[in-house]
Design a binder for these strands. Structure first.
Length: 424
RNA sequence: GGAGAGAUGGCUGAGUCCGGUUGAAAGCGCUCGACUCGAAAUCGAGUAGGCGGGGCAAAACCUCGCCUCGUGGGUUCGAAUCCCACUCUCUCCGCCA
């Protein structure tokens, strides 16, 4: 959420910033509401002030045994006016709140202009995509061949975009999760959380999924619970409504969670394999930092996510998302894209963002500096990494001519020393 | 699921029966100052947030006002205090992985 005072004072800056996203928002209506709100407030506050002073006087008169019935009658009428005006204020404020919650974050100045993922700017590459001297198989073919991924039965018991991992497939998924969590907690200084997989609407508003993107998520019937689309939601909201101490910052959390996404509007895209599932696993990195440090923290967070791919020896590239491809709440995002032979392309495996104070304002997360007033922290997060896509990348990049799959060295301890998956 | 207790500032905790200088005692913590070579101890001062108006180009800051004692409603001239609903926490019982 943008700062109301900032929008009021700098509507042109806001419009200009949103232009980078390719959206033009008219703030005229909003600013008109703002003016209306303020004039209503002036009016109603004057009445309330009057009521307060007169009520006090009534108390004194009663104590002195004097008759105050005339004043009481007058104040009764004032009370009715106040009630009427308060209702108007509430209505205006609700409209404004809705409006404000629906305005996306303003992109950072370093974010490139552009309309779609084609306009994202490549920052760096790591590793060299392998040249196969045979026709490499897609991970879904490999998964079925070894009977370690069962898409058909996933569809049978749940539906499209659900999968059973089986045997070494399940073990590989679990090994990746543990490998990532161990790396981030032991080497990168993150404190692990195991979050709730469902949250309430307040948390979803806090990180920006609501009110605009309800159709992208799964809602639990007859309750205010939503299945989390990412651990970002519970983990970022963990300090919602709190004032942190300066010396607590920066806070680093990592968390494994299952993620649930409705994938509305993705019909026909990535229908095969593990790339786009309604339920997938992810290890998430979340940071809370002082505003002046957040962009440095974004670089470090991205490097922490990249480290996973480096250790697994999977080639990748990093891109800066252009304005048109930027997520709703983010000010700047780096996507890490892993090489997937079946696509003959790099595919997103992590998205690392700085939200600046956008989420902090919505979730009301502040910190108190040693000197000065409490102000909003900056929040960041990134996948470290999406696990299903990591498994896909391993299966595809590590396949051999004889059909076997080499296990990356650092994962072997997590699989009882297993060196390769091969036909029995 | 049943019965009961509770929710007050950064924290602990009074006030709630009996509505009116209580936005809130006291203590702790924190900040600044004094003392000290320095620290501790001691002493003094300060210390909730949000919104709106004015001062101001703006921020800081100052000032006036409004709102906030879990949340939302109600009663009343006036509510932390009375009534209703909800949420959460704790204790006991039942059930359960």
């Amino acid at each position: 959420m943008l700062d109301l005072k900032f929008v009021r004072a700098n509507p042109e800056t806001v419009k200009e910033g949103l232009k980078k996203r390719g959206i033009s928002v008219s703030l005229d209506e909003f600013l008109k509401l703002d003016e209306k709100r303020r004039s209503l407030l002036t009016e109603v506050e004057e009445l309330k002030s009057k009521r307060n002073t007169v009520s006090e006087k009534i108390g004194e008169m009663k104590k002195a045994g004097e008759d105050a019935s005339k004043m009481i009658e007058e104040m009764r009428q004032v009370g009715d006016q106040i009630k009427e005006l308060d209702a108007q204020v509430k209505e205006v404020e609700e409209k404004m709140e809705n409006e404000l919650l629906s305005i996306p974050n303003i992109p950072h100045e370093s974010v490139p202009f552009g309309e779609s993922d084609e306009d994202n700017e490549e920052v760096r590459r790591w590793g060299e995509p392998r040249k196969f001297d045979f026709e490499p198989k897609a991970h879904w073919e490999i998964g079925e061949k070894f009977d370690i991924l069962d898409f058909e039965r996933g569809a049978k018991v749940a539906g499209a975009r659900f999968t059973f991992y089986k045997g070494l497939g399940a073990a590989l998924e679990r090994a990746c999760i543990n490998f990532m969590l161990d790396l981030h907690t032991r080497e990168h200084g993150y404190v692990e959380l195991f979050p709730p997989f469902m949250v309430n609407s307040g948390a979803m508003i806090g990180t920006g999924q609501l009110p605009k993107f309800a159709e992208d998520m799964f809602k639990i019937e007859n309750s205010d619970y939503w299945l989390i689309p990412t651990a970002e939601v519970p983990v970022t909201n963990i300090y919602g409504g709190e004032v942190l101490k300066e010396d607590q910052l920066p806070i680093y959390h990592c968390a494994y969670s299952a993620c649930f996404r409705a994938e509305a509007g993705a019909h026909g895209r990535d229908t095969r394999g593990l790339i786009r599932q309604h339920q997938f696993n992810k290890v998430e990195l979340v940071k809370f930092s002082k505003p002046e440090d957040s962009y440095e923290e974004l670089e470090k967070l991205t490097a922490n996510a990249e480290k996973v791919l480096q250790l697994l020896e999977l080639p990748y590239r990093v891109v800066t998302l252009c304005g048109g491809d930027l997520g709703f709440s983010a000010a700047k995002t780096y996507d890490i894209e892993v090489w997937l032979p079946s696509f003959n392309a790099y595919r997103e495996i992590s998205s690392c963002s700085n939200f600046e104070d956008y989420q902090a304002r919505r979730a009301n997360i502040k910190y108190k500096p040693k000197k000065g007033k409490a102000s909003y922290v900056h929040t960041l997060n990134g996948s470290g990494l999406a696990v299903g896509r990591t498994v896909s990348a391993i299966l595809e990049n590590y396949q051999e001519a004889d059909g076997s799959i080499i296990i990356p060295k650092l994962l072997r301890p997590y699989l009882g020393g297993l060196e390769k998956i091969e036909a029995k």
